[in-house]
Simulated scan of single mutants.
Amino acid sequence: MQRSLVQRIATIAASLALAYAAAPAVAAGSAAASTHPAFKVEVTGKGAPVILIPGLASSGEVWDGTVAHYCGNRQCHVVTLAGFAGVPAIEGPLLPAVEQQLSDYIAANKFDHPIVIGHSLGGFLGMKLAADHPDQVGRLIIVDTLPALAAIQMPSITAPQMKEMAANMRARMESMDPESYRANQLKTLRTMITKQEDIDRATGWGKLSDHTTVINAMTEMMSEDLRGEVSRIKSPTLVLGAWYAYKDYGTKPMFEQMYKSQYQQLPNVKVELADTARHFIMYDDPAWMYDRIDNFLK
């Protein structure tokens, strides 16, 4: 894969975080549900449980179309993470808190192997949950994320190098002038979403997200390498990826190979890439996404 391509992909997640870092901070506080302050939950429908996790600085509303499609005979539990889209932030590392509280939520509600669907950062959390609690998760659906974002540019990257890269990214984000990155936010979101109305919606969620939480969550994810850990996942897994925004840097088969190489230690995984959708596949090509998920769930 060409170096210009991997450099572009490796910086895209950081660019989004930089853009959201320009948003005003939301004060930390206690979430409405004391048993799971790391996220809030909206429950819709009745039947077998489905847990939907949104991405960085996103609201659970990103799954509205998915809920409408699947919650006629299923019960959807749509989370929004603390510090994102107006939900009060919490103290301490977010990702381990969300993972543990999701595990506790599944146990407390006596869910029998719920379907877990995650987008971007939410997909990363779904992977962690399924790897660390393999007997709790049913089918796992990951929408456009990878086990090791920092390894895209350098597959042989070591753990110390990964942490150093994440620390450098944090330093850049923390030094940003908010005014300078308003234009960068729009530029970044336009590589991830096609329609302006959807870009505006995501921009609004970013403005309601806590500055520190966004930086910390992005740094946490960039510091981790789950390529080996996914071998502990027992769940049949579907990975839906997007490549179209980078068509000038490589071909679809090149991207497919990159995705499959990162997931090669995950047993029973199916990887598919959309033809023209960008990162927010649920907005850009919901029909394609639902068709793949429908077939997977059958």
Score class of each variant (00 low, 15 high):
127 M>I: 11
44 T>S: 11
182 R>I: 11
71 C>I: 05
11 T>I: 10
59 S>T: 04
145 T>G: 09
66 T>W: 14
14 A>F: 04
82 A>K: 00
137 V>C: 01
27 A>W: 02
172 R>I: 06
152 I>T: 07
262 Q>C: 02
136 Q>M: 12
126 G>Y: 09
191 T>Y: 09
193 I>R: 07
20 Y>V: 15
240 L>N: 02
202 A>R: 13
226 L>D: 04
89 A>E: 06
154 M>T: 14
109 N>T: 00
55 G>D: 04
77 H>N: 09
259 Y>S: 10
233 I>G: 06
131 A>G: 06
24 P>H: 01
50 V>I: 15
148 A>I: 00
40 K>N: 13
283 Y>R: 07
214 V>G: 12
128 K>N: 10
99 E>D: 00
46 K>M: 09
203 T>I: 10
244 Y>Q: 14
122 G>T: 08
103 S>K: 10
78 V>W: 10
291 D>E: 14
130 A>D: 05
79 V>D: 04
6 V>M: 13
289 M>G: 04
252 K>S: 12
219 T>H: 12
27 A>Y: 02
294 D>A: 06
295 N>Y: 09
281 I>Y: 01
224 E>L: 13
107 A>T: 15
228 G>M: 05
219 T>L: 11
269 V>E: 04
255 F>S: 06
65 G>N: 13
273 L>N: 00
167 A>R: 14
132 D>C: 00
131 A>P: 06
38 A>N: 01
186 L>I: 15
61 E>R: 13
122 G>S: 06
79 V>L: 15
98 V>K: 04
82 A>P: 04
37 P>H: 01
295 N>S: 15
46 K>A: 15
9 I>L: 15
72 G>Y: 09
40 K>F: 00
284 D>K: 03
234 K>V: 03
215 I>L: 02
77 H>M: 01
213 T>N: 05
164 E>D: 13
189 L>S: 01
34 S>D: 12
19 A>F: 12
155 P>G: 01
267 P>K: 08
108 A>N: 08
205 W>L: 03
287 A>I: 10
165 M>T: 14
112 D>W: 02
169 M>R: 07
166 A>E: 03
270 K>P: 05
248 D>R: 12
221 M>E: 15
260 K>F: 03
230 V>Q: 07
8 R>L: 10
174 E>R: 09
205 W>S: 01
48 A>F: 12
245 A>S: 12
38 A>Q: 07
178 P>V: 14
14 A>T: 10
127 M>C: 06
232 R>T: 15
192 M>D: 06
99 E>T: 14
177 D>T: 12
156 S>F: 02
90 I>S: 03
295 N>E: 11
79 V>Q: 11
280 F>Y: 15
252 K>L: 15
262 Q>A: 04
42 E>C: 05
69 H>W: 05
179 E>Y: 11
223 S>V: 10
289 M>F: 11
249 Y>W: 12
150 A>G: 07
214 V>C: 11
277 A>I: 10
263 Y>F: 15
175 S>I: 00
74 R>L: 05
248 D>K: 12
29 G>N: 05
186 L>P: 00
182 R>T: 13
258 M>F: 03
199 I>E: 07
237 T>A: 08
